[in-house]
């Protein structure tokens, strides 16, 4: 018998090829089983020794596997971070090639016009009177193209500013209700009721309304998907410590405690592959932060979850 059935190197492994699994799935259980079986037939003292040996094999194998799982998780997390980064870079790349293309055309025209004007000015820098009108045309064209460039940069600035929230006063109840109506029919089809518990005395909030709608729709959709037939989603608003608070409560399956800290992580999803991007809650979390608020989650498995948005008043 081999004394050490799990010869896995604990040090750094080549990243591209995972070590084989058969020592853990076949060799270790086989050896342990053989040791236990022979312990039955052997004299008591040898039997204890063999049982201890079987235990050692199992522990060794389990430790090695646990190490591999942990390393895998770490790699996955790094991959997520890198993916997010590369998506950002791709977006920037697309944007800048677009700008370059848009600006290059007017620049090409400006270059041509300036060349032509220089030629018309002639060697002694004194244009013939009949060329003056052409030179004026050149200058006009240059002016027009500069205006075009201004328009492009202006649009871009608008686009960049578009990313910042635009604050408007709006009744919170109205913002929530718009999205609730949208979800209600589908929820009713699934046998899920939507209850309202709005605080009527809540003053209007100053916030970016479309962004907040996006968050609420996302929370509502999640709640609907988590809630089985006969369940209820409750939409509530209230005032707490000088902030406006929105709660989306469901009587759904709940989130296991080990998953709760991860729900706002990008790409974290418990849906089947292809069903969810794992981006909804992380986007919502980012939006609420941009609005100066907090998005938090509480949950009890089997009882349901509460997502709470708190916004400045």
């Amino acid at each position: 018998m081999n004394p050490e059935p799990t010869p896995d190197a604990p040090g750094p492994l080549p990243g591209d090829h995972a070590p084989p699994l058969w020592p853990h799935t076949l060799l270790a259980p086989g050896l342990a089983g053989a040791a236990v079986l022979s312990a039955l037939a052997a004299p008591p003292l040898v039997g204890v020794g063999l049982a201890l040996f079987a235990g050692a094999i199992c522990i060794g194998s389990a430790l090695t596997l646990a190490r591999r799982v942990r390393r895998g998780e770490r790699e996955l997390h790094e991959l997520d971070v890198r993916l997010l980064h590369s998506q950002k870079l791709a977006a920037i790349g697309e944007l800048s090639s677009g700008i370059a293309h848009e600006i290059n055309n007017p620049l090409a025209i400006i270059t041509q016009e300036i060349d032509l004007a220089r030629e018309l000015f002639g060697q002694d820098a004194c244009p013939a009177p009949e060329d003056l009108a052409d030179i004026k045309d050149c200058l006009d064209q240059v002016g027009k193209q500069v205006a075009r460039c201004c328009q492009i940069t202006h649009k871009l600035l608008n686009f960049a500013r578009k990313m910042e929230p635009v604050l408007q006063e709006e009744a919170l109840e109205q913002v929530i209700e718009d999205m609730a109506v949208l979800v209600e029919r589908e929820a009713a089809g699934r046998g899920v009721a939507i209850r309202r518990d709005y605080d009527q005395s809540l003053p209007p909030v100053r916030t970016d309304v479309p962004l907040l709608r996006q968050v609420i729709l996302n929370l509502l959709t999640n709640a609907m998907h988590a809630t089985p037939e006969g369940g209820t989603i409750t939409l509530a608003t209230c005032r707490q410590n000088g902030r406006a608070v929105i709660e989306v409560r469901d009587t759904g399956c709940g989130i296991p405690p080990e998953n709760l800290p991860k729900v706002f992580d990008p790409f974290f999803t418990t849906k089947e592959p292809g069903k969810g991007t794992g981006l909804g809650l992380s986007l919502s979390h980012g939006i609420v932060a941009r609005l100066g608020g907090n998005l938090t989650a509480q949950s009890a498995v089997g009882k349901g979850s509460v997502f709470t948005v708190s916004l400045p008043l």
Binding site: L182, E186, P210, R213, Q214
Partner: peptide, 29 residues
């Protein structure tokens, strides 16, 4: 990008509502 868009729909599809709002619609009615 500055023009605001309000989407009207005959049937409530939560899926397209989500898409519409994330594409920058002002509201989905």
């Amino acid at each position: 990008p500055l023009v605001e868009v309000i989407i009207l729909t005959g049937h409530a599809s939560v899926e397209s509502g989500m898409q519409g709002m994330s594409l920058g619609a002002y509201d989905y009615v």
